[in-house]
Design a protein around this nucleic acid. Structure first.
Lengths: 164, 164
DNA sequence: TTATAGTTTCAGTAATTATTGAAACTAAAA
DNA sequence: TTTTAGTTTCAATAATTACTGAAACTATAA
């Protein structure tokens, strides 16, 4: 496979995977494009290569920056902004985990927290209470585990995987 | 908080959380409704309580069954089908993990597998190759870890979380 | 058989989410 | 200042995804 071809495959795949990972297609494609580019790219470069509008590039690049997956880069002698993606897969995975923890796990925990019944007498009330409690315990463990992951050093996951 | 109120909160929350968990809102709401019901519910019960159409109930209940999150239940003396959700949070989490592994991780692994370059000479080619390799290693570890989780016994996650 | 109760499918429609493109904005340089 | 290069925002529109409702189907009972 030629490099160009592989790049395109990769960008396409990353884009369509993005949707199942909770990231929109364009954002994922821009990320992929930045990942495979050695040189920083300008908004225009991205517009051209992916055939998308300036507004779209702007919004999604901003989100990538918010997620910590890309950075602005000023190139000497150039007035416009350029962008690069962090090439460190480990750091990338941690950033994604951090975002998902925030968007998926934490709202669940907050909601469960609120669901306290006035009284717990009937079997239905008891069952509900224990459901909420179990879900809460589970969410807390998952949260703790993700937290460890996010603050871990490189290779943690490898070590962990081999330890089990 | 009254039981009814708590039920509604829970159903609403589970539904809106569903979307960020990659499950559509109705499917998540049906799941929540079944979770809080002691009695098995018929398609009609679900239609009424959630104000949705028969077709919608049917499709989403089927998906819940496919995911292993709900089961058909025949009630003696009744001709129609009733549905229940597994109340075991642990089993539920494993099912969700299994689905997400299938939908999110495995396609990534398959794609990365294909991205082999003919030759690796230029710095760009080298960088691309190492990116793909790193992603692959990472995906494999994550896959392994999830696999362990899916086949694990209850409390594995608690033990794991406390071990770290 | 035919009637009846219940389930499934799917074309059309509605709701949601992503994208465009042009106008408003900001800042550097002439 | 004014001009020019570049960035950001957002209303309008397109694309995607979910839902409805009615018709087709299946199975039991009269």
């Amino acid at each position: 496979m030629k490099l160009k071809e592989a790049h395109n495959e990769f960008i396409g795949a990353w884009g369509s995977l993005g949707s199942s990972w909770g990231v929109n297609r364009t954002m994922a494609q821009i990320h992929a494009l930045l990942l495979v580019s050695i040189e920083p790219l300008s908004a225009e470069d991205i517009m051209e290569k992916l055939n998308i509008s300036r507004g779209n590039v702007n919004m999604n690049v901003r989100t990538l920056i918010d997620w910590g997956l890309a950075d602005k880069r000023f190139v000497t002698g150039e007035r416009k902004e350029f962008f690069v993606a962090g090439k460190d897969v480990w750091g990338m995975a941690k950033q994604v985990a951090r975002e998902r923890k925030k968007r998926e796990l934490e709202p669940l925990q907050r909601t469960l927290e609120k669901l306290k019944l006035d009284k717990v007498n009937t079997p239905e009330e008891k069952e509900f209470q224990s459901l909420v409690k179990e879900l809460g315990q589970f969410a807390d463990s998952a949260d703790g585990l993700l937290g460890k992951f996010i603050n871990s050093k490189k290779n943690w996951i490898f070590k962990l995987a081999s330890k089990l």
